[in-house]
Each structure stands twice: as C-alpha cells, then as structure tokens.
Computed example of a mutant assay.
Amino acid sequence: MEEVCTPLKSDSRLKHRPLTPLRLLRGVICLVVFLSTAFICIVYLSPLAVVGLRLISIRYSRKAVSFFFGLWLSMWPFLFEKINRTKVVFSGDSIPMRERVLLIANHRTEVDWMYLWDLALRKGRLGCIKYILKSSLMKLPIFGWGFHLLEFIAVERKWEIDEQILQKNLSTFQDPKDPLWLSLFPEGTDYTEQKCKSSKKFAAEAGLPVLSNVLLPKTKGFHTCLETLRDSLDAVLSIAVGLEVHLSFHFCHKMTRRHHPLHVGC
C-alpha cells in the first residue's frame, strides 16, 4: 500500500508581499551566485565530462555530467528555501526514491521547472532531471549552453517537425540502467488568463473538455514519450504546482518494468 500524505490545506488566495530592499538584495545575491557558478561549471567542468569521457563511454560521460549538474543544482533549493526564505510544501502520494520516471506537470508560472528541483533533490534524482522545452530557450547565454550539454530536448511546437526530434532524442534514453527524470509540461506554455480564454474557446469549438485551471494539453508529445520509453520507465508522475509555491505531488501510476503494459489515468 502506498503511503499517502495528509492533504494540503492552504488559503487559495494569492499572497502578495512588498518588495523591500532586503528582499531585493537577497534575490540579486541568489541570481548572481547561480549565474556565476553556472558559467564556471560550463567552462571548466563540462569539457572533461562531455568531451573527454564521451570518447570512452557515453554512460560514464552521462554519469559525470549528472554528478556535476546535481552538485551545482543543489545550490538552488538552498538559495531558494533558505536564503530567499520561500516555503515549499509537498503533499499527495508518497513517491519512491531513485526511479526512472516520466514527470508531467501543470505550468502556472514561467519558473515551474525550477520548483521541480526541490522534489528531485529529495528523491535523489536532481542530477538526472531533463526537460522537453521550446527551442528558443537553447539560444539563451550560459543557460542555453548548459541545456545542450545536459541533453535537454528542444522542440519547435510544430508536430510535423517535433515528431522526429522527439523520437530521435528519446531513443537515446531507453537504457533502464541510466537514471532519468524526464519532465514534460503538456500545456506547452505557461498559464495566463488570456491563454486560458483562448484554450476554452478552442476546446468548445472542437468539442473537447473546457478546462478552467489549466490549458488544454497537447497529447502527441506525451504519447510519444510513453511509447518510446514504456519498457524502461518505472512510473509516470503527475505533479500539480500551486500558486503559493505549494507543490502537490500525486503518484499516478506505478508499474513493474518490462512486465506490464503502461496505462495512465490521472
């Protein structure tokens, strides 16, 4: 039987706190430390892990990248939760440690992908978390270089182009011995009131369910991830990110690798 945590009870109203000089200073310090250390890792550590070891073994190269990436990325929860004093609350079903999972989440803000690091750290998977993201992010200075080195999957959000991109990249992650947390935001973009109105209009015209708190998800990419990785995944996780930086984790489906077909219903 899965251990179920106590449901999260919180005020649904979004709390706005004034931007004081101290809060601004803490935010600037966090940003400077994060960017400067990212640059150091990319310039000095990644050539050894990505270029040197990859000539010998792709697996060892990925292990080295995962180690350095996880070591550097562990600073974020510390800066985020301790220095910036942001309270992160987890609720929902218990999630086992160290599994290969496909992780799907809603997209309430532009930084939801960062919130997932807090969970990955606690589950021993911080270094192996990877994202499917829009290709324009690959052009960002420093971060874009890192996304390439970490083998994030960039998509154009045009299925006639993205189908081959996804299949080609996902096929390199099929080894069940390689640790993996593949993160996907099925909505395809962050939530806004205007996007919600457009999503509702499209859903109504197409005879699809009209959703209020999320945008109509794009299913083709999700389906491709499942079909390509189904024999190497341990589970599919559905995560709901709350507005008050409350993270609610719901364990959708547990499967035994290779023995049972994958069915997901959240």
Results as ranks from 00 to 15, higher is better:
69 F>S: 15
70 G>F: 04
71 L>P: 00
71 L>E: 04
71 L>F: 14
71 L>S: 11
72 W>Y: 14
72 W>H: 14
73 L>P: 00
74 S>V: 09
74 S>E: 05
76 W>T: 10
77 P>E: 08
77 P>W: 07
79 L>E: 10
80 F>Y: 15
82 K>E: 14
82 K>A: 11
84 N>L: 11
85 R>F: 06
86 T>K: 14
87 K>P: 00
87 K>H: 10
87 K>D: 12
89 V>E: 14
89 V>G: 00
89 V>L: 11
93 D>A: 11
93 D>E: 13
93 D>T: 12
96 P>S: 05
97 M>Q: 12
97 M>K: 08
97 M>Y: 10
97 M>P: 00
100 R>C: 14
101 V>Q: 04
101 V>M: 12
101 V>W: 09
102 L>W: 03
102 L>M: 04
105 A>S: 14
106 N>R: 07
106 N>Q: 05
106 N>F: 07
107 H>S: 08
108 R>W: 09
109 T>P: 00
110 E>T: 15
111 V>A: 13
111 V>P: 01
111 V>F: 09
111 V>W: 13
111 V>C: 07
112 D>G: 09
112 D>Q: 05
112 D>A: 02
113 W>M: 08
113 W>S: 13
114 M>N: 01
114 M>E: 00
114 M>Y: 10
115 Y>T: 08
115 Y>E: 13
116 L>T: 10
116 L>F: 10
118 D>F: 06
118 D>S: 07
119 L>V: 10
122 R>G: 05
123 K>V: 14
125 R>V: 02
126 L>M: 10
127 G>H: 10
128 C>P: 07
128 C>S: 15
128 C>E: 06
129 I>M: 15
129 I>C: 06
130 K>T: 00
130 K>C: 01
131 Y>V: 01
131 Y>E: 05
131 Y>R: 01
133 L>V: 06
134 K>H: 11
135 S>P: 00
136 S>F: 03
136 S>Q: 13
137 L>P: 03
137 L>E: 04
137 L>W: 03
137 L>R: 07
138 M>F: 15
138 M>A: 15
139 K>Q: 05
141 P>S: 11
141 P>E: 08
142 I>H: 01
144 G>M: 12
145 W>S: 07
147 F>P: 02
150 L>E: 06
151 E>M: 03
151 E>T: 03
151 E>Y: 06
153 I>L: 02
153 I>R: 00
154 A>I: 02
156 E>G: 00
156 E>Q: 13
156 E>M: 01
156 E>F: 04
157 R>W: 12
157 R>P: 13
157 R>Y: 13
158 K>R: 14
158 K>P: 00
159 W>M: 12
160 E>R: 13
161 I>W: 00
162 D>H: 03
162 D>W: 03
163 E>H: 09
165 I>S: 08
166 L>G: 06
166 L>F: 03
167 Q>I: 07
167 Q>S: 10
168 K>E: 15
168 K>L: 08
169 N>I: 00
170 L>H: 05
170 L>M: 08
173 F>E: 09
174 Q>S: 11
174 Q>I: 07
176 P>T: 07
176 P>K: 06
